[in-house]
Design a binder for these strands. Sequence first.
RNA 1: GUGGGUGUAGCUCAGUUGGUUAGAGCGUCUGGUUGUGGCCCAGAAGGCCGUGGGUUCAAGUCCCAUCAUUCACCCCA
Length: 413
Amino acid sequence: MIKAIAGTKDILPVDIQKWTFLENLVHRILTNFNYKEIRTPVFEETKLFKRGIGEATDIVSKEMYTFIDRSETSITLKPEMTASVVRALIEHSLDKQQQLNKLYYLAPMFRQERPQAGRFRQFHQFGVEAIGSTSPILDAENIVIAYMILSELGLKNLTLKINSLGIPSSREKYKDLLRNYLSDRVNELSEESQNRLNTNILRLFDSKNERDQAIMKDAPVLLDHLDEESLRHFNDVKELLSKADIPYEVDPRLVRGLDYYTHTTFEILSESVGAQSALCGGGRYDLLVKEIGGRDVPGVGFAAGIERILLACENEGVLPDNKNMIDYYIVRLDKELDKEVFEIATKLRDDNKTVEVDYSQRSVKAQMREANKFGAVKVLMVGGEEFERGKAVLKEMNTGEQKEVEISDFMKS
RNA sequence: GUGGGUGUAGCUCAGUUGGUUAGAGCGUCUGGUUGUGGCCCAGAAGGCCGUGGGUUCAAGUCCCAUCAUUCACCCCA
């Protein structure tokens, strides 16, 4: 048997309602915030992601689906959306057509990681990118959007964590400070953390090693060494979140690896999924557009994992499974009336009704059972002497009540 | 890439210290007297017990390998 590739999943008819429900919610709320949807190709030139995400990151160095196509171009299935959106923005000069572009998307992403709860190799994200403004209002707006969507689904047990990375110049100064603090204790650090000293020193705070944690406990914190403007920006964001009644936790350990990330970072975590508890994450990237080859345009955005959100919904028992009903089931009383039933069904469907019929000459009982299974509101029984008189029996399934009706009434367009 | 768990019917799972034709519930299909659903009752279909090797008189059960899957680490959404 040929099976779906590891880490990929079929979304079957039984699951699809949940997906469309969430998708519709995303479209509705983002429309309310006046964001415009953008769709980009599932694959891009590999170098876009190398520049847009960073060669040193795990995503680029070991998780991308990359291949050489027939014209010898290195192609990569997109592992995230921001680089693609920024590419499209630059390519079509959206940033020159208007000062601020508020964009959103909903799309599949691909990363070759080991699958686990809430993590797949093909997964889906929705997210937003607000490109063209440094206003902290947009940072806050991003967070409000994410929080609103998750709350509206009915999710509880959410934690919003925020942090500020400041700007590269103050961050570098801080990193020196941190290196200085660690200089005489390097040998006490775990091997993993020693490696990070050069690649991503801020991640040392994240170590699960107890000895590392003890050392980092008294280390200087970036938030205490922000420049004045970054501090003001961060305070503005916090104030705006309070005005929106959104509870948050400041978490100095919330970092992004690369230099073009600036100011705000945030994550919303759920206790209702497994270890991969981040439902969404994002932040400000004032230097990214330029890095990818555009003008010096600031931006802020986030991405949310749809599978994780639906998993959380599943585990919290929200998203009532509204079983779908059909308007009519047409029961064929006489076996030779297939074509007449087909004609009536077609007319009803043309009249925007959901209609099901039997396709295999089954007994009336079997047809009625199926009508019940499909949740038919009404059953139309066609055949017998009523049919000779141009009539059929219409049954209301919830009351069991039935009456004769003119077939011609159903044949009107 | 590293570590742990699990593979028996479409699904969820039983299957005793190895011992005859491998079971249940749900689902599917059929029937319970003329042309009427749900509840109930009866019946049917559906299994190379993941795959390959080994131990044994005998393997779903024990051992090894392999594949799949799942959870966790790393990292991320």
